[in-house]
């Protein structure tokens, strides 16, 4: 096996042995489950209508103050 001896430094820092931090855990061989109900809770945890017109949060209020104070300076 001809492995390159010279490796970029990032690769070297990475590991002495191979690793995948996110290796999926094994399911038991005979594990079966009802997919329909379970997992549902987790699949409903998303928002796609978050991009509202509300500008009363702290960040927006500060932004407004910033924009107004600056315009006054001019």
């Amino acid at each position: 096996m001809a492995t390159e001896q010279v490796k970029p430094p990032t690769e070297e820092a990475k590991i002495d042995l191979f690793e995948d931090d996110d290796e999926f855990e094994e399911f038991e061989i005979d594990q079966e489950w009802e997919a329909k109900d379970e997992g549902k809770e987790v699949t409903q945890q998303w928002e796609d209508d978050w991009d509202d017109d509300d500008v009363n949060d702290d960040f927006s209020l500060q932004l407004r103050r910033e924009l107004e104070s600056n315009t006054e300076k001019k």
């Binding site: 996110d22 594990q31 997919a35 379970e38 997992g39 987790v42 699949t43």
Partner: peptide, 17 residues
């Protein structure tokens, strides 16, 4: 995510990641 066994939280977390 939708089909993962709900008791396998570590796996659900990895999917979400």
């Amino acid at each position: 995510l939708a089909h993962c066994n709900a008791s396998k939280e570590a796996n659900i977390r990895m999917i979400l990641k």
